[in-house]
Structure formats: C-alpha cells, structure tokens
Design a protein around this nucleic acid. Sequence first.
DNA 1: CCCCTTCTGCGTATGACATACGCGTTATTG
DNA 2: CAATAACGCGTATGTCATACGCAGAAGGGG
Lengths: 263, 263
Amino acid sequence: MGKGDAVTGKSGTGGGDLPASIEAAWGLRERPAKGPKPGLSLERIVAAAVAVAASEGLAAVSMGRVAKEVGASTMSLYRYVSAKDELYVLMQEAAFGPPAPLAALEAGAGWREALTEWAAGQRAQFLANLWVLRIPIGGPPATPNSLAWWEQGLQALEGSGLGEGDKISVILLVSNFVRSEALLVSDLSAAVAARGVSPEEVVAGQERTLRRLVDPVRHPAIHRLLDSGVMSEPDDPDYEFTFGLATLLDGVEALIRSTAAGG
Amino acid sequence: MGKGDAVTGKSGTGGGDLPASIEAAWGLRERPAKGPKPGLSLERIVAAAVAVAASEGLAAVSMGRVAKEVGASTMSLYRYVSAKDELYVLMQEAAFGPPAPLAALEAGAGWREALTEWAAGQRAQFLANLWVLRIPIGGPPATPNSLAWWEQGLQALEGSGLGEGDKISVILLVSNFVRSEALLVSDLSAAVAARGVSPEEVVAGQERTLRRLVDPVRHPAIHRLLDSGVMSEPDDPDYEFTFGLATLLDGVEALIRSTAAGG
DNA sequence: CCCCTTCTGCGTATGACATACGCGTTATTG
DNA sequence: CAATAACGCGTATGTCATACGCAGAAGGGG
C-alpha cells in the first residue's frame, strides 16, 4: 500500500464499499496483527476533537490542532482517519451518543407524546453541541447512533397506524424541523458571542435594521408585523420549538386520522 | 483609510452599522466622486461568481477564480467586496431574484393555495441553484430579495386570521422545510454526480448499506421498514416535498381553526 | 533465531486559499 | 495645478488539508 491508508474501506462482514468513516463508527476495524502497537486510538482523537469544538467552535478543529491536543504530529492522525470529513462524522457520532429510552413509550403513552419526547431529546443534543450544526452535511449518515435515533423515532410512531413510508417521511419532517430550529438558536448564540451583547440586544438590533430597510409600500405585511411589536415579546427561547412542533404534529395527527379512516 | 476598504459600513440613510454585504445588496453605495473610474462592478463580479458556482459548484468559487473569470487580479475584488462571505450573500441574492407574483393571491384563492405556491416557488429556486444550499448560513439575511420573499409569504397568510407572531412562525416553518427538503435533493444529486451512476442506483446502494448494518433485534422498526420495500417504490422526486408540505399545512390549518374558534 | 513483511509515527513538501499592506497611478476638486 | 481619494494589483503571510516516503517496531515463517 503506501497511500493515505487508515483502512481503505473493506468490510469484514461482506466486502462492500462502505465509506471508511462508517466502518470506523461501527468499530469494524480488523486489528492488524503485524506492525507496532498504535500509540493513539480513534477514541482519543475524536474525544480531543470534540473537546476543541466544544470550547472553541468547529472552526478551531484543524488536523494540526487536534494532533497537538493529543500530543502527536499532524500526519499521524491520518493513520486513524482517512480525511477530515471522517473525523467530522465521528465527532458527531460521539457527541450525540445513543438516545435515552423514551419514557413515553414505556409508559404506554400515545405516539404524540413519544414523538414530542423524541424531538425534545434530539434538540437537547443539538443545543448541548451547537458546533454539530456547523458540520456540512453529506447525505444521511448511517452511523450506529444515527440509526438508533431513527429507530427510536420509528418506534414512537409504532401505534399510529401509519404505513412504513409515511413513518419515515414523518420522522424526516420532524428531524429536519428540529435541526432548523436549533440552527436558528445557534445563529443567535453566535451573534451574541461575536458582539459582546445580550440576546435581547441582538434581536432588538435586528429589528432596528429591518425597520430601516422595510418600505411600508413595498413591504406592507412586514411593516405590519414590525408595528405589531411581536418581535420584542416572547423571550421564551423554547417558544419557536414548542410552537413549530405542535403545529407539525397537528399535521401528522390529521394524516393519521385520514389513514385510519381509510385513505 | 487604507485597510481592507470596500465600503466599511456607513449607511447613507441614517448611519447605523449595517453589515457591508447588506448595504451592497440594497445598492446603498455612495458613488465616490474622487478617484479613477472603477474598471469592474459588483454586478459583474457577482455574476461571474454565480456562473462558476452554477457550473462547477460552490467549492470552485474562490476569490482568485472569480478574479480570473472577470479578467482582474485577485486583490482587486476586495475593492468591491469586503470579504468572501459578502460575496456569498450577494450571490444568493442574485441567484434567487425577487419572487414572481402569486397567482393564487391574484385569483383570490385561500391561504393554503397561496402558501403552497409560495413554497413551490422557493423550492424551484433552490433546485435551480443547488449551490446556494452549500452556503453556510449566518442568521436571517436582510437582503432585498429575501425580504421580498418574506413579504410574499406573509401576504399569503393575510386572510388566515392568524396573529402576526403566528404568521412569521408559520413562514419560518415552511421556509425551513423547503430548504431541508431541497438539501436532501441536493445531497442525492451530489452523490449521483460523485459516482457516475443513476439516482436509482444510489438509493439502492444506500438501502443495501443499511441492510448490512441494521440488526433485526437492535433495530426492529428499521428492519420492518426495509422489509416493507418502501425504499424502492416512489421514484417521484417531488413526493417528499408534496407529502411534507401537505402535512405541514394540515397543521397550520388546525392552528387557524383553533385561532378562529377563539384560542 | 533471524529476516521479511507490515504497520507505525512523523518530517517534509505541495498547493489552495483568504486576506493584510503598501505602491504607483488616475481622476476630481478646490 | 496641486492635494486628495480611489483604483488596480504585486507581494507577503499565515493557515490548512493532505501526498509521499523514510526509519523504526512487532510479529510470523523459515
């Protein structure tokens, strides 16, 4: 060999072409019995990367930086990770962890309670690891924890009577909603961090900017919105989440009803 | 002066601290009457950048590349744009353009038809400019066309009886949904472009990968899903959009009903 | 028991890139 | 007609990801 090694993508289970990052996440690493013992481990590297991201943001995560953190040279990391993207995937996987069991399911509650709990859990993970939202996406990751989350979402919909196809669609819908809303929170938090002011001031500043740009003739609806004073009211950081999720689930409820009726 | 100039952020209208990119988008540029005539123009630069992004993807858009395209040196661009992020904002603004008038509104149709048309229009813009989805977001952009889209969304909800706060929340909800779904399409399309195969093959490959990883015991719901054969069915690229939007709007409908009832 | 294979850590090198700085040049205005 | 600003842009800096190859370590086969 002699290229960028770091396990070039052979599965032990069947010989497909799994992205190396996925194999790494599943721990399908054939311990090579030949060379010297590795001085590092994927876990240590990923943990260090996560620590850097958590304290200084995803942008601070460079191969060099992670290497320094772990006490090794930059290039040695490539013995464990084939590219930075792979590190990203592993970081996300590590930060999220597996989902906690759904209390609603165990209590025998309905799909709505279960899905709500599921969404809240996912949101909590995003808010606890805002940097995850800055990782550029590249298709649905098939990592163990991601799958576990999906599994749990599907289970929440078990008693709904929906068809399998509708179930994933709903899961996708909720999942994307959670992500979008978290990103919004993250953006606000980033703005707060960038300037040194309070969230309220940031929002107020945005409103002032809008007011300056909005022309009552060209933008009557926005103008009305600004005049209504809604921008200054809520203050509850969870409001948009609660509202959006409720609305979304009302839609799902309608779908379930029509399915049950025989659609 | 003598720093990174390119209009450092003074508004002609009131003297606030608008991000330079926003000012640029609104055309609030005080034509300096002093120096030599500019050999370039923001429009030319942005158009060149958009062309590169459209044909080779956002990653191909570097300052150097755009400069070459426009027949100037890299650094000369910084006389027109204060940073690359600004160029991004301008690119998005240019690619999206203003929204077309809503036929549903003019025909006096209800909010649902109007919002559906609005969402479809937005989606069409994303699909026609997939690279836009790769631009890292940083808060809600207050550019002219963005505002125009918001305005139109709010107008679509005019006859709904919703409060102003609920209106933006709904707009946000729909808007984020459209973006998420478009990103999904974009990811698929990227995977198709990366390997040289058909969309069907990509999806089939993903299913095969999943099948390999999913353990019937650990992931009963996903296993059931795979067994149901739903993954291979639809083939309609608009399905997820249509389904998701309908579900979402059902939720909005419930909200409107309860508002009308007096909640 | 030794050597050969295979893997390790890592120094070095390459090639992008964004962008700061300052110089010479060109219009415009007093 | 000079003082003033802007302009185009060459040069330099610093950061990154990552290719390549070497030297040393650890087992396995003869």
